[in-house]
């Protein structure tokens, strides 16, 4: 009975995809596909080792894992079992590579949750503790100094003139006569980025978080062109996080280690928020400018702000319905 439950596609769609879902268990077709895949770049080595009679069992197991990784389907369409299998495989592969353990979660949405965010423009002083916390929490590439959050320093009296803002300051803050605004992925209800993806590698989860399957993304960067809020980042080369700095509490759709040539972005720290914690940026903010919460909970602080403050959102004319509001005291 329980097994039957596990076989059901989680995302509610019956459509099958990917190697696992299409060719699973049929050995004759599997071997046919191996020949087809022989010509594909990264699979070639895996195939030759997997089929080799001389290679050691350990080596064979490793290539089988590479093979299964390469041909797995889109996470959105995986059954519970398939999700557990891929997470397990990724953990094993990491241990094999580094000798260390990571814990990758595949925790789904919590019922009756729709995450949202509010930013108090009066309180932010531009300390950028949120940025640092975000980079550490989410295992972002240290070499290119990738950051999901941007803090814009704007002169008083200019209004919300982003094109006059300084997004890359290196001076002491708060800078007299300036105010600060933070931007990141706004997890739009009607997100232009998910609409344009040619392979459905990015989508909105039930709890409102816009996520990316890093292993399904083909790296065309169409989503990046479609995002009006500069919310998306691309791995222009192999991202690198020093071994001792890797955050080992990971989520498949969140802060697990990425690879070269794929998109990534803020996930409201899905590995934390789905466990009932605040995202790292909220936790780190020394001024209390950041509020995260459940929009469906009438008693949440977030709902209080939305109902009692004069809130606004950026570029509302585009109709993207961001779940990220700004307000002042």
């Amino acid at each position: 009975m329980e097994n039957e439950e596990n076989k059901k596609p989680v995302a509610g769609r019956e459509k099958k995809d990917g190697y696992h879902q299409v060719f699973n268990l049929e050995m004759d077709r599997r071997s046919a596909l191996k020949r087809f895949a022989g010509g594909l770049f990264s699979a070639t080595a895996a195939v030759t080792t997997a089929c080799s009679v001389t290679a050691s069992d350990e080596k064979k197991e490793k290539s089988n894992m590479d093979w299964d990784e390469y041909f797995k389907g889109n996470y959105k369409e995986m059954t519970k079992d398939e999700r557990l299998a891929t997470v397990d495989r990724l953990e094993k592969m990491y241990t094999e590579r580094t000798g260390k353990n990571v814990n990758i979660s595949e925790k789904g949405e919590v019922e009756n949750t729709l995450f949202g965010y509010a930013f108090n423009v009066s309180k932010c002083q531009g300390y950028m503790d949120c940025v640092t916390a975000c980079v550490t929490e989410n295992n972002q590439d240290r070499d290119s100094e990738m950051q999901y959050i941007r803090i814009h320093e704007i002169e008083d009296g200019k209004g919300f003139q982003f094109n006059e803002a300084d997004d890359n300051y290196y001076h002491e803050v708060p800078n007299e006569g300036h105010f600060y605004m933070g931007t990141q992925c706004f997890h739009c209800e009607d997100a232009p980025c998910t609409k344009v993806c040619p392979v459905e590698a990015t989508w909105q989860e039930e709890d409102g978080i816009v996520v990316i399957d890093y292993d399904w993304c083909i790296g065309c960067r169409y989503c990046m062109a479609a995002c009006p809020y500069d919310g998306r980042r691309f791995n222009w080369t192999q991202p690198h996080v020093p071994e001792e700095e890797v955050n080992t509490d990971q989520h498949y759709l969140g802060n697990r280690l990425r690879k070269k040539g794929v998109m990534e972005k803020c996930t409201f720290c899905i590995q934390r928020s789905r466990e009932g914690q605040n995202p790292a940026c909220v936790e780190a903010c020394p001024t209390g400018a950041r509020t995260f919460g459940n929009l469906l909970d009438p008693n949440s602080e977030l709902r209080y702000i939305l109902e009692n403050k004069k809130v606004f959102r950026l570029k509302e004319d585009l109709g993207t319905e961001p779940k990220f509001w700004y307000y002042t005291d």
């Binding site: 995809d17 990917g18 190697y19 299409v22 594909l40 770049f41 990264s42 699979a43 390469y70 889109n74 040619p198 392979v199 590698a201 292993d215 399904w216 993304c217 083909i218 790296g219 065309c220 960067r221 691309f234 791995n235 070269k260 040539g261 794929v262 998109m263």
Partner: peptide
């Protein structure tokens, strides 16, 4: 493409 080896993700069915 950032991931040319994953272009098969675009083939309908597969």
């Amino acid at each position: 493409m950032g991931g040319p080896a994953r272009l098969w993700h675009m083939i309908p069915g597969l």
